[in-house]
Amino acid sequence: MPRWSRGFDVDAAARHLRRHDPALAAWIRRIGPIAAEPRWRRPFDPVDALARAILYQQLSGKAAATIVARVEAAIGSARLHADTLARCDDPTLRACGVSGNKLLALRDLAQRESLGEIPTLRQMSVMDEAAIVAALVPIRGIGRWTVEMMLMFRLGRPDVLPVDDLGIRKGAQLVDDLESMPTPKTLAERGEVWGPFRTYASLYLWRIADFAAPAPRVPVKRSQG
């Protein structure tokens, strides 16, 4: 059974993209190198990461961090899991600032963890991207984008292209000097040339979209934890 390593050679990825996509290559030269993500080498707990991703949804980083800190204090642990979340009833978690929908999502995550439905980090090391997506998107409140962020920023998979992400689509629009953002389907087809390093291309597309923005923006928290 094949094992997927966490992370990839960003220099090899840059060479590949420059060689196969002249339009993107011009932006790569303009922006400069993007370093490897340090968290690729750090162990992490998928359940805890997913719980934090749920709590961070649709909030500013500061507001979400405040709520997470309150939850950690209420459960008496920095580890968000079925056993620790079970220490608090629903009203207590709601008092921490957890919305009703997010509470339902946390409880669903915890139940699925208890049933052994959430792959461990070790199990993910022998699962391809499609299998990981299929295992995690049934969790309430967890969509494909959230799983793709885990694949890119925590698992270091080299060939992920989040075609529904607006920043990615805006970056692609600028690379190809298009009048409007490409559709997800068009972007998926366009991105074939970037394989097997579509993750690294995505990192540049986000930078390109930010680089070309007319005014500073609050950075989007794209990964868990």
Rank of each mutant, 00 (worst) to 15 (best):
R3V: 12
R6F: 13
G7R: 09
F8L: 13
D9S: 04
D9I: 06
A12F: 03
A14M: 08
R15C: 05
R19E: 15
R19Y: 03
A26H: 04
I28T: 10
R29F: 07
I34T: 09
A35K: 10
A35C: 05
A36I: 05
E37D: 15
E37P: 07
E37H: 11
R39L: 13
W40Y: 10
F44W: 13
F44S: 09
D45N: 15
P46H: 01
V47T: 08
A49D: 15
A51S: 01
L55R: 01
L55D: 11
L55K: 07
Q57R: 01
Q58W: 11
Q58N: 05
S60L: 01
G61D: 06
A65D: 14
T66E: 10
T66C: 01
A69G: 14
R70C: 03
R70M: 02
V71A: 15
V71Q: 13
A73F: 00
A73C: 00
A74H: 08
I75Q: 00
G76D: 10
G76T: 07
R79D: 12
L80W: 04
A82M: 02
D83K: 12
D83V: 00
T84F: 10
A86C: 10
L93M: 08
R94V: 13
C96K: 15
G97V: 07
G97Y: 14
G97W: 13
V98Q: 07
S99N: 12
G100N: 11
A110R: 00
A110C: 02
Q111K: 09
Q111I: 05
R112C: 04
S114G: 03
S114Y: 03
E117C: 07
I118W: 01
P119Y: 08
P119A: 06
T120L: 14
R122Q: 10
Q123L: 15
M127Y: 13
D128W: 03
D128L: 02
E129H: 01
A130R: 11
A131Q: 13
A134I: 13
A135G: 04
A135C: 04
L136T: 07
P138L: 03
P138M: 01
R144A: 06
T146V: 00
V147H: 13
M152D: 08
F153K: 03
F153H: 12
R154I: 00
G156D: 08
P158C: 12
V160P: 07
V163F: 03
V163P: 00
V163I: 01
I168H: 05
Q173D: 02
L174Y: 08
L174E: 05
L174K: 10
S180D: 10
P182C: 03
P184Y: 10
P184L: 01
K185L: 14
L187A: 08
R190Y: 03
R190K: 07
R190A: 11
Y200E: 02
A201Y: 01
L203G: 12
A209R: 06
D210C: 01
D210R: 14
F211G: 00
A212V: 12
A213F: 06
A213T: 08
P216G: 07
P216K: 02
V220N: 09
R222D: 05
S223K: 03
